[in-house]
Simulated scan of single mutants.
Amino acid sequence: MNNEELNTYFTQQLIDMASERLGGETLACSDDFFAGMENLLKPGRGVFIDDKYTDRGKWMDGWESRRSYGRDNGREFDWCTIRLGIPGVIRGFDVDTNHFRGNAPQSVSIEACVCNGQLDDNTEWTTLLPQTPVDAHSQNLFSIDSDQIWTHIRLNIFPDGGVARFRVYGDPSIDASQFLPGELIDLASIKNGGRALLCSDMFFSDKNNLIMPGRGVNMGDGWETKRRRDPGPDWSIVKLATEGSVNKVLVDTAHFKGNFPDRFSLEGTNGSDSDVLAGNTEWQTVIGEQKLYAHREHLFMQEIESAQQTFTHVRLNIFPDGGVSRMRVFGYRKEDLK
């Protein structure tokens, strides 16, 4: 795939598991004299303000170390360790040097580890990306072939310099140890391993906003389609974290006051991602059409028609169009129903 195709694949089909929004955190770095390491995981690509300076030099929207190359400071490269907000299988990286034109690294390498406690000198790191050249002021995209679940990343930059943003794209994995046997779980939550696979339209905002943590902060923090000129519906398919039942559903139209859907319905199916995406599965009604209202949390339990069945995917249908801030699909894992 070329860079444009790779970027589309990363952003439309995978999750940035290091995102600050999902709980990703920069833990430590060798040096961040000019710009803090925490900027790496912020949203967007970073900005440049021409005349903004700090008492340490030019303000930069990213992580930037002081100059070390050719100096006797004992460092051959700089590094930053990151705890993923969601553990999972890593499919690719975006090392974005946006606005770092004369101060970008020459090359990078990336390592990963599995750690349930604190990183220390005994942590075993595995190289996922060997030392590879990067371009200044560019999105440097790298595809990774690894099927292991990872929890932490170490970004190494050679010999020094600045990176605006760092994305770790992959497939989140549910951690069964985080739940009690028989616990009611939000199976759609991105934090638990859910993922929005496909939608009819996301003109105004991304489909994965629908399953993000917390309530939406504004109208842009939801899933919103363009205006239809037919009865609809628009729809979004969510892969559940694991196969399970649907016992309680919450549909939140927070901040959608003049553009909320008139009605919604929810369907479920069992199948692989490829079958679902190819349209080779049968959809079954979970909740028939129900009225929605502006800027409100809507809770549905009695309306659920198939609480005794299990599903791998659900499809939210909105009539005729509009915006939904969040959807929660609470149920029990299939193995807990035995």
Rank of each mutant, 00 (worst) to 15 (best):
residue 223 W to Q: 05
residue 149 I to G: 06
residue 13 Q to C: 14
residue 220 G to L: 15
residue 41 L to I: 12
residue 131 Q to G: 10
residue 136 A to Y: 10
residue 282 E to Q: 14
residue 304 I to G: 04
residue 89 V to L: 09
residue 252 D to S: 03
residue 324 V to G: 01
residue 292 L to H: 01
residue 162 G to H: 06
residue 210 L to R: 09
residue 208 N to F: 13
residue 83 R to K: 14
residue 303 E to D: 15
residue 289 E to F: 06
residue 86 I to E: 00
residue 59 W to L: 05
residue 327 M to H: 13
residue 149 I to T: 13
residue 318 I to T: 05
residue 228 R to F: 01
residue 25 E to K: 15
residue 140 N to T: 02
residue 135 D to I: 03
residue 199 C to Y: 05
residue 80 C to I: 06
residue 61 D to M: 06
residue 71 R to E: 06
residue 7 N to Q: 12
residue 132 T to W: 09
residue 39 N to A: 12
residue 87 P to V: 06
residue 263 R to L: 09
residue 278 A to T: 11
residue 288 G to M: 06
residue 83 R to D: 04
residue 318 I to F: 01
residue 117 G to I: 11
residue 140 N to E: 00
residue 91 R to G: 11
residue 98 N to H: 15
residue 187 L to F: 05
residue 119 L to Q: 07
residue 220 G to V: 11
residue 106 Q to A: 14
residue 306 S to E: 08
residue 334 K to F: 08
residue 278 A to M: 12
residue 300 F to R: 02
residue 21 R to H: 14
residue 124 E to I: 15
residue 170 G to S: 01
residue 47 V to C: 13
residue 104 A to E: 08
residue 276 V to G: 04
residue 85 G to V: 04
residue 296 R to V: 09
residue 155 L to H: 00
residue 19 S to F: 04
residue 177 S to K: 11
residue 87 P to K: 07
residue 172 P to I: 06
residue 326 R to D: 01
residue 257 K to A: 11
residue 56 R to I: 04
residue 159 P to D: 01
residue 199 C to G: 10
residue 77 F to H: 13
residue 8 T to P: 00
residue 24 G to M: 07
residue 261 P to V: 05
residue 63 W to Q: 02
residue 165 R to I: 06
residue 73 N to K: 15
residue 134 V to W: 03
residue 235 W to R: 06
residue 232 G to Q: 02
residue 135 D to T: 13
residue 188 A to R: 08
residue 317 N to R: 07
residue 143 S to C: 08
residue 324 V to I: 09
residue 17 M to V: 10
residue 287 I to D: 01
residue 127 T to W: 02
residue 227 R to S: 07
residue 277 L to I: 01
residue 207 K to D: 01
residue 5 E to L: 12
residue 203 F to C: 14
residue 231 P to H: 06
residue 32 D to K: 04
residue 83 R to V: 05
residue 217 V to C: 11
residue 276 V to W: 13
residue 272 S to C: 05
residue 143 S to D: 00
residue 192 N to Y: 09
residue 132 T to P: 09
residue 27 L to C: 08
residue 51 D to C: 13
residue 152 H to N: 09
residue 253 T to G: 01
residue 254 A to N: 09
residue 324 V to P: 00
residue 246 V to E: 09
residue 14 L to K: 11
residue 292 L to Y: 01
residue 10 F to G: 00
residue 227 R to I: 03
residue 50 D to W: 14
residue 44 G to M: 07
residue 9 Y to W: 07
residue 222 G to S: 02
residue 52 K to L: 12
residue 27 L to V: 04
residue 57 G to R: 07
residue 181 P to S: 06
residue 219 M to F: 15
residue 266 L to R: 12
residue 197 L to P: 02
residue 194 G to P: 10
residue 175 D to W: 04
residue 173 S to F: 08
residue 143 S to K: 14
residue 21 R to P: 10
residue 246 V to L: 11
residue 311 F to N: 03
residue 117 G to Q: 02
residue 174 I to D: 00
residue 255 H to Q: 04
residue 225 T to A: 06
residue 283 W to G: 02
residue 86 I to C: 10
residue 120 D to F: 15
residue 295 H to C: 02
residue 299 L to M: 12
residue 131 Q to P: 12
residue 210 L to Y: 08
residue 325 S to W: 04
residue 92 G to L: 03
residue 225 T to R: 01
